[in-house]
Structures are given as structure tokens and as C-alpha cells.
């Protein structure tokens, strides 16, 4: 009788795992969600540390349009990633696959289930103390499998950045690496990006600052440092970094626009001049209309 109960429990756990798997696999995945997943798995080639999904660069926008088009043509996510890798090199690929982690999580409990079944079968004549343990393990494994696979296939329709929790492993590894070699600007930058992606802006700022100190002539890093300060609600703190960029590259138009806007908004002299320089250099920039409005208002 108890053997039946054991069998029933195992069957229940396995069924639960299967339900989770089937729910994940068979759930209708909207094309938009899949497009987002593919875009998240590709690196924006004209940006620093941004995926195609999160970048506002024109090249990233064009890449997103190509992803949509290829999905409409019936290509799989893997085929599309391979298509981009062929053109941009494998460095365009971020994670191997958005589902990879989920399947790995599923495999672990699957192995536990198998081990539990083997234990029950081989130890049934030697006593029953293994049975509850095995059943518990099988049940737990089933639950974990269901959870893991379901969350791996969960649609990611929002454009929110990766959560701190999701980025934690990368952040942890990078933190350790930076701790052991804090003078490496690449490591500092990689950690800053990971923290930035995780929404930990204040901490990201510290590492952008460190990377920028290590590479003082790198305007890309300085600009990232400035933008994270702005996004963290500290635009005034971004002023020195932006001034440094313009000292190195007087025609760095993003810095002209950002510094000009910050100074203009703060009523500080010089903002208008910077915005005018920006307009001279980038009269057709998507922000030109807004800047023109600002300058017109300023004069009236």
C-alpha cells in the first residue's frame, strides 16, 4: 500500500515537472516577445555595453527591424542570431541563448528525479528510510523544474533593464575580478556596465569613474560616466566629465547637447552657446527640433 503511495507521489512530481515544461514550451510566444528576446541576445555594434534591444542607436533600430522581418519570414531565433554572427562576427552575440539558463536549471532537477527513482528501486528491500527522502527529493525537483522552465520562457515584453537579481551572477564575478585587479580599466568598465544594466546606477557610476580615471582620454567612457550620472538624477555632477570630453573633442556632439542642456536648464551661462554649436554641427539631428525650440524660447 505504501509502495503505491510512493509511486503516486513520484508520478505526481514528474507530472508537475512535465506540466511546467509543456506550459513553457507550448505557450503561445508572441512574435514581439521573441523579437525582444533575440534583440536582447545581440550586442549593439555601435554602442558601448548595450544590447540591440536597449539601444537607441540607428544601427540597433535597423537591426531590430531586420529581426522582425526575419521572424515574419519564419526564421528561428537561432537562425537569426547565426545570420547576425555571420555579418558582425561572434562578438555580436551576447548570451548563447535566452533559454539556455532555464534548460540548465531544468536538467538538474531531472537528474535528481532519476536518482530518487533509482534509490527507491534499489533500496526498497533494505529498509524504508530512503523512501521519504527520495520522494521529497523527487517532489522538490519537480517543483524546481516547473518553476525554472516556466520562468525561462516567460515573455519579456517590457523594456525594463535586467533586474539586479538577474544580473547578480555576472555582477558578483566582476566584483571579485575588480577586487583582485582594480587597476584594469576593462574590468572596471565591464562591472560598471553590468551594474548599469542591473539598474544599480550609483554603484555603476563609481566604476565608470574608476575606468575613466584609468583611461582619462577615452571620451566614450567619460560620456558613459556622464550619462549614468544624469540618469541617476545628478546632472550637475556630470558637468566635469562632459567638460573634459569637450576639451579632448570639441565637436563631440552628444556631449555638446548634454552639457548644453544641463547648463541651460540650470540657468548657467554657456549652455546656449554649446547648444548653438551642437546645432551648427548636427542640424538634422533628431533632437534638433527640441533644441531649436529651447534656443528660440531663450531668446524671447
Amino acid at each position: 500500500m505504501r509502495r503505491w503511495a510512493v509511486g503516486l507521489s513520484i508520478a505526481g512530481a514528474v507530472a508537475l515537472a512535465l506540466v511546467g515544461i509543456l506550459t513553457a514550451v507550448l505557450a503561445p510566444n508572441q512574435r514581439g516577445d521573441l523579437a525582444r528576446e533575440v534583440a536582447e541576445s545581440l550586442r549593439c555594434p555601435s554602442c558601448v555595453g548595450e544590447s540591440v534591444a536597449d539601444s537607441s542607436a540607428p544601427v540597433a533600430a535597423a537591426m531590430r527591424a531586420v529581426i522582425d522581418e526575419q521572424l515574419e519570414e519564419g526564421r528561428s531565433a537561432g537562425e537569426i542570431r547565426a545570420w547576425f554572427a555571420e555579418r558582425y562576427g561572434t562578438e555580436v552575440l551576447l548570451d548563447p541563448s535566452p533559454l539556455a539558463g532555464g534548460w540548465l536549471l531544468w536538467l538538474v532537477p531531472a537528474v535528481i528525479i532519476a536518482a530518487a527513482v533509482i534509490l527507491i528501486v534499489t533500496r526498497r528491500h533494505r529498509g524504508r528510510r530512503w523512501i521519504p527522502l527520495a520522494v521529497t527529493a523527487a517532489a522538490l525537483a519537480g517543483v524546481i523544474a516547473a518553476w525554472a522552465v516556466t520562468s525561462a520562457a516567460e515573455p519579456s515584453g517590457s523594456h525594463s533593464p535586467t533586474t539586479a537579481e538577474g544580473a547578480a551572477p555576472a555582477v558578483g564575478v566582476l566584483r571579485d575580478a575588480v577586487e583582485s585587479d582594480s587597476g584594469d580599466p576593462q574590468l572596471q568598465l565591464a562591472l560598471a556596465r553590468a551594474l548599469d544594466d542591473a539598474g544599480l546606477l550609483a554603484e555603476a557610476e563609481q566604476h565608470y569613474a574608476a575606468a575613466s580615471r584609468l583611461r582619462p582620454l577615452d571620451t566614450d567612457i567619460a560620456y558613459l560616466h556622464a550619462t549614468v550620472l544624469v540618469r541617476d538624477g545628478r546632472p550637475v555632477d556630470a558637468v566635469p566629465a562632459l567638460e573634459r570630453i569637450l576639451a579632448i573633442e570639441p565637436e563631440h556632439t552628444p556631449a555638446l547637447l548634454l552639457l548644453g542642456t544641463i547648463l541651460w536648464e540650470g540657468g548657467v551661462q554657456g549652455g546656449e552657446e554649446l547648444l548653438e554649436r551642437f546645432m551648427e554641427l548636427e542640424p538634422e539631428h533628431p533632437a534638433a527640433t527640441e533644441v531649436r525650440e529651447l534656443l528660440t524660447e531663450g531668446r524671447t
Binding site: S55, P58, V230, P235, P254, L257, P286, A287, E290
Partner: peptide, 8 residues
């Protein structure tokens, strides 16, 4: 204008 700065 600041939002447009995001345009790389």
C-alpha cells in the same frame, strides 16, 4: 533634448 542624447 536630454532624452535624445541617448541616440548614440
Amino acid at each position: 533634448a536630454v532624452a535624445f542624447v541617448a541616440v548614440a
